[in-house]
Structure formats: structure tokens, C-alpha cells
């Protein structure tokens, strides 16, 4: 994911002189070449997330498009009020890149785990939220972020480096994209959980359960009509993401469902609303929170059995 990120950003900066990249002291082994190539368009502002958002605001008010990069936890929570007032209210071209989201920094505990960022960003009017799930979506997200006039939050984690998309897949902001077709239920996945969801659906196929797999690299805005089309087709909808079950895609889909005539039932499969107070490998922590092929499938199977 990071390779897709830096390659795309470098290409964008080569073709667009108005882009400035700011990092709050993050980017070891990511930004070294970019820094050399663009000494006046790359700045490490140190551990100053709040001032950095203001600094980015000043640059954006002067006509630049700023990509601000920091750990997802600190790019969103530490400076939330600055993002809301300086960037959000002014609808500025500041693209906030939250790296190492979810359990990416698996050994570092709650201080670095990030299960709240998307929920917070969703509360800011006009904020586009892109949560790419593989390198293809990452490249797409960055290109979109530059095109969109206004603030964007791009969130990614360490999982999701395997290519799931095929070259030529046509993604659209706000729209789900069908990855594999089934004949009952739908699983909508966002962000780094794409690969896990893909494997889960493949595993279910072995049991003759064919589920439609949609990827949703946009969390905000969401095209309601596109979601209602899925709701109209399937009774059971599962939403998988590496975020607190409160506030992100599962919530967004539930809100759309509750405000429509749909009888579909949404099952949110995400991080439960509790802090994770232990360390471990990424797969261990995800599994602990119900995010593994086995746990996802057991949730799906239980739900389908109960509702038959």
C-alpha cells in the first residue's frame, strides 16, 4: 500500500506544481526520495499536528493543494478541532492521509491503535473519506483526492497489500464496486479488510454459499441510490471494516437502510466498542476482534441460519 501511495503521490507532484506534501515527522523509508526530488514542496513540520493543520490551511488558502501525512490516530484525533474549523469549514484542498490505521502498529497498543478516525471525519460537513483496500484502490484514491475540490481524508492500514482488483476496474466516488458475484446476501467491505473479505467469500463458496462481494473504498459521500439497489436485492447485508462498529461504513449503511423502505438487515462486522488492551500480531489482534476468515464466516453462517 505504501508503495502505491508514494509512487502515485510522486507522479502527481511531478505533473502538478501546486501540490505540497507535509508530514508530521512520519514517513521513514517512504519519503526520502520525494524529499530529494521536491525540496521546496516537501516539509517535515515535526510533531506539531495541530499547528501543521493550520500551516496546511495557510498554504491551501494561498492556492496550494496540501497532502498532510501522519499516523491515522494523530492526523485525526490529535488535531480534530483544527481539521474541523480550519480545513472543513473553509472547504480547503487539504488532503489528510492517515497511515497505519486500525491495528497496523500491532505491538504498540491503544495509543497507536486507530478505530475512531473515520467516525470523527464523517462528522465534518464536506469531508470526503476514502478508505482504499488494495494498491489499485490506493492509486485511485490519491488521484480522486487531487481532483476533488475540498477536504479529503485518505485512510489506510498495513493490511491490504495484495492486489484484488483487475486492471481496468472502474471505481467511482460514493459507489460500491462488485468484486465477485454470488446468489444470496451481500458483503460490503471497506479498506484493508478487502483481502480478508475476499478470502472469506471464497471459503464460503466451498460450502456452496455464494455471497456477493462489494468493495466500498468511499465512506463519505455515499450514493444512496446505489446502496438501495443492493438493499432491494438482498435481505442480509454484512459490512466488514477495521474500525469501531460505531461511526464508519457499517453505521453509514445502517443509516441509509433505516431511512429507506428496505427490509434488509445489516450486520456490522467490525471492531467491537471496547479498547484492545493487549499486544500481538496483526492477524491475532484482528481475530481477537472478530476479524478473521473464520470469525467473519461463522458470523455470516450464524446470521443466515437464524434468519432462514
Amino acid at each position: 500500500m505504501k508503495k502505491a501511495y508514494i509512487d502515485t503521490l510522486t507522479a502527481l507532484m511531478r505533473s502538478h506544481n501546486d501540490i505540497i506534501t507535509i508530514t508530521a515527522d512520519m514517513g521513514f523509508s517512504v519519503y526520502e526520495n520525494l524529499q530529494k526530488e521536491f525540496p521546496t514542496r516537501f516539509y517535515n513540520t515535526g510533531v506539531t499536528e495541530q499547528a501543521s493543520i493550520g500551516f496546511s490551511t495557510g498554504l491551501a488558502l494561498s492556492g496550494y493543494t496540501v497532502f498532510f501525512y501522519a499516523q491515522a490516530a494523530f492526523a485525526t484525533m490529535r488535531c480534530f478541532e483544527q481539521v474541523r474549523l480550519d480545513v472543513g469549514y473553509n472547504n480547503l484542498n487539504v488532503k489528510i492521509v492517515g497511515v497505519n490505521a486500525g491495528f497496523s502498529l500491532n505491538q504498540l497498543g491503544v495509543s497507536h491503535f486507530t478505530q475512531e478516525d473515520i467516525g470523527l471525519m464523517r462528522l465534518i460537513p464536506g469531508m470526503t473519506i476514502l478508505s482504499p483496500g488494495d494498491p489499485y484502490e490506493m492509486k485511485w484514491a490519491l488521484l480522486q483526492a487531487y481532483q476533488i475540490d475540498g477536504p479529503v481524508y485518505i485512510r489506510f492500514s498495513k493490511v491490504g497489500s495484495k492486489d484484488i482488483h483487475k486492471t481496468g476496474d472502474k471505481l467511482k466516488v460514493g459507489h460500491p464496486f462488485l468484486i465477485s458475484k454470488g446468489n444470496q446476501s451481500a458483503l460490503i467491505v471497506s479498506g484493508g479488510m478487502l483481502e480478508l473479505a475476499y478470502d472469506a467469500v471464497k471459503e464460503l463458496e466451498k460450502k456452496k454459499i455464494k455471497i456477493n462481494l462489494y468493495t466500498m473504498p468511499t465512506v463519505k459521500p455515499i450514493d444512496k441510490i446505489a446502496i438501495r439497489k443492493i438493499l432491494a436485492l438482498y435481505k442480509n447485508i454484512f459490512v466488514v471494516e477495521e474500525h469501531n462498529i460505531i461511526g464508519a461504513l457499517g453505521s453509514a449503511i445502517s443509516e441509509i437502510t433505516s431511512e429507506s423502505a428496505s427490509k434488509s438487515i445489516i450486520t456490522r462486522i467490525g471492531v467491537p466498542d471496547i479498547f484492545t488492551g493487549v499486544t500481538g500480531s496483526i492477524p491475532y489482534l484482528l481475530d481477537l476482534n472478530g476479524l478473521s476468515v473464520n470469525k467473519i464466516n461463522s458470523k455470516i453462517l450464524t446470521t443466515l441460519t437464524k434468519r432462514h
Partner: peptide, 13 residues
């Protein structure tokens, strides 16, 4: 504490 950070960005630009 919002004005000065923005001012720094404007001055840098």
C-alpha cells in the same frame, strides 16, 4: 490558538 498556525502557512506560501 488557530490564528498563528494559519499565519505561518500564509507567510510560508
Amino acid at each position: 490558538g488557530h490564528g498563528l498556525p494559519i499565519g505561518v502557512g500564509l507567510a510560508k506560501a
